[in-house]
Design a binder for these strands. Sequence first.
DNA 1: ACTATAATTCGACATATTTCGAAGTGTAGT
DNA 2: ACTACACTTCGAAATATGTCGAATTATAGT
Lengths: 122, 122
Amino acid sequence: MSNYSIDIQKRAEMFKALGNPHRLAIFQRLTTCCVPGTVCEMEDAMHFTVGEIGEELEIAPSTVSHHLKELFRAGLIQTRRNGKSIECWIEPELLEQLSGFFNIDFLNNQSELTENKQKVKS
Amino acid sequence: MSNYSIDIQKRAEMFKALGNPHRLAIFQRLTTCCVPGTVCEMEDAMHFTVGEIGEELEIAPSTVSHHLKELFRAGLIQTRRNGKSIECWIEPELLEQLSGFFNIDFLNNQSELTENKQKVKS
DNA sequence: ACTATAATTCGACATATTTCGAAGTGTAGT
DNA sequence: ACTACACTTCGAAATATGTCGAATTATAGT
């Protein structure tokens, strides 16, 4: 369990964090807050307070807090105090990074993969 | 925990399965088996036997078996008996699906997102 | 039939996770 | 200073997970 690169350990922690339905729901909420079809204002629209998140989930505040801490520790969300409440959001770069992990083109060590794919299929 | 859509439940199970370092290593092995720079023969090169996987992980065969079962139950890998051994592989479509989940363009409900992104940044 | 190889199933055990309520901390308004 | 609001921290309890060795199943070769 301990002879893996930081890389795989860190990523496993991310996936573990997303492996709980409540946390995945939070994460998804934080990514899909932009109304479909409208311009996404990254700086504002993607922020939610802990309270807002808790309302949708219907679980105890202490449980919401626990889950948010897990998401934060995994490096999936950012938080910031704003007056009485605390804002949560996701950095768009993180989504790119995660998306890239499953990108077979990426895994194939760069570039000419679109080419290769076609070769295989022909 | 139970008032979530099948969708989110199923996906959470996938991420939970990937949330263990050993399983993530298996999964990664199964996706990156193609030698970088060469053509990826989907039908053959992406298959590994349980034994081959176990060797690299240095854990008891029964533990490997357990992890593979989890990956299978989550819908992440496919298996097939071939003689004495059992082959495991990942369907490329699955990688596309997972990659798409983190694709903010995708989340934003299709198409004109590349456009939108640029609008925001300008 | 016997043996070897490949993998799974079955307890068992230690450890981790999820969840809650109660108590605590920090901020803003009166 | 007091009160309300927003959230976190701290046990505690129930449940789930990761790991192994021993026993079992399935296949192939002799």
